[in-house]
Design a protein around this nucleic acid. Structure first.
Lengths: 237, 237
DNA sequence: AAATAAAACTTGTCTATACAAGATAACTAA
DNA sequence: TTAGTTATCTTGTATAGACAAGTTTTATTT
């Protein structure tokens, strides 16, 4: 019995891949929990843990007495969860990220949009200003602040798969745990209007986020400006 | 052993109430899962189910090896979950709802913002147009469409606690299961500007929702226009 | 006193089983 | 045929344990 890397995560990943490959048709039923338990040589409760994750991510529905139903692909960009951009947007869109400026280390801004912890105040922050494209249309401006706890490598290093979160996890042992966010609608500034090629004051979805990490009292902060004329932002539950 | 009404829901409700009453200080630890299991005369796994709900709702955090940490109250309106307005906004704000027009039964609009099921197409819909206030400020215009499956009573009847979802559940055995939503930023129309007492084209957060229910193929649909100048919209995970 | 190791907590994952309750198909009686 | 019942699927909830793996406290050693 090989259960060193958590088992339910493997099952979750395996099912997720099969769903992405279209093994199960949209609207059809996944094998029952008992069948899956047999397939993966484990118990029903472990399978249920994997399925619960899939529900949370919007891949399947579950109906009492019926089964697990494969949901249709998202049309919108699923950005309300805490996954990174590439994961959230998924395989239905081609994604690209460009840096507006080079990442830099500097003191935290004077008035910050979240209350910083003492630990954070005592060190500098690493800033990243990026623009995100979906299907070659600019959809998001993202400003990110990270506490610079030995992350200087990020200044020069390329991001793995272009994913900041994956790089932080595998290279710096910095894992994202949970996320708070506040949403507002704001008008595009002159500068933002240029990036999105839209008129000034075009309504933008403005999201302020604080990610909690495995390092207590160290957070990652982001401000996102989303141009939603072409792509809406989706999120389940 | 009284376990007719699901036990973990009772534990969840009990803890939620204690948190609302301030029994546990913000930042402090809840009793451990083992202690709670003893208190509620049940097993750890059942307690964990209740705690998982509390995490999903943003009331607590959990740290491996540490415990369940009481989170601070939300400053913003927590509208991204599928709870009703009163539940989502919570006890930190006084909430009020007014009907813009009387609820009415009519055919579904010609072009609807979600694809209707055949079951839904075969019956009329019940519409509700409401405006929501938080601390006496207008914060949300909500347009709701329900399939009229014997809900005529809603036309005349007052809503329990002012909550549509609670009334649907207890009076009509109509339970909300899950929710999809799409978010956009839009400019306020002339009419909306009047309701919110703001200039025309003020950016509003526009949310389109589809709630799934225990009645297969019957959904509840909502369009929300949120005025976010004073209150942001919050949501965890 | 300070660094190190052990013990005693905590939550996370997992097994194995049981029964409740919703959904559906097969069967039975009118 | 039709209506109702039963059997058998499914997921939902709950029990009772076990060990892994973080975190903190205590004890031990240097």
């Amino acid at each position: 019995m090989t259960n060193k890397p958590r088992q339910y995560k493997q099952i979750h990943a395996s099912l997720k891949q099969q769903l992405a490959e279209g093994v199960y048709a949209v609207g059809s039923l996944l094998p029952s929990e008992n069948e899956l338990a047999t397939q993966f040589n484990t118990t029903r409760m472990t399978v249920r843990q994997a399925l619960t994750e899939l529900v949370r991510e919007g891949y399947i529905d579950r109906r009492h007495g019926k089964g697990s139903i494969v949901r249709s692909e998202r049309q919108a960009l699923g950005l309300l969860s805490f996954q990174g951009f590439s994961d959230a947007v998924g395989s239905q869109h081609t994604v690209r990220t460009e840096f507006l400026t080079d990442p830099a280390v500097r003191p935290w801004p004077d008035s910050f949009f979240y209350a910083l912890t003492d630990t954070e105040k005592s060190i500098n922050c690493l800033t990243m200003n990026r623009i995100r494209y979906a299907d070659n249309s600019p959809v998001m401006l993202e400003y990110t602040w990270l506490p610079n706890c030995g992350l200087d490598g990020l200044l020069t290093q390329d991001l793995l798969d272009g994913s900041l979160f994956r790089t932080l996890s595998s290279q710096y042992n910095f894992d994202i745990r949970q996320m708070d966010q506040r949403l507002r609608a704001v008008g595009a500034t002159t500068e933002q209007a240029i990036y999105f090629a839209c008129p000034k004051n075009t309504p933008l979805l403005f999201i302020e986020r604080r990610y909690q990490t495995n390092q207590t009292n160290l957070h990652i902060y982001s401000q996102l400006y989303c141009f939603t004329n072409q792509y809406a932002i989706s999120g389940g539950l």
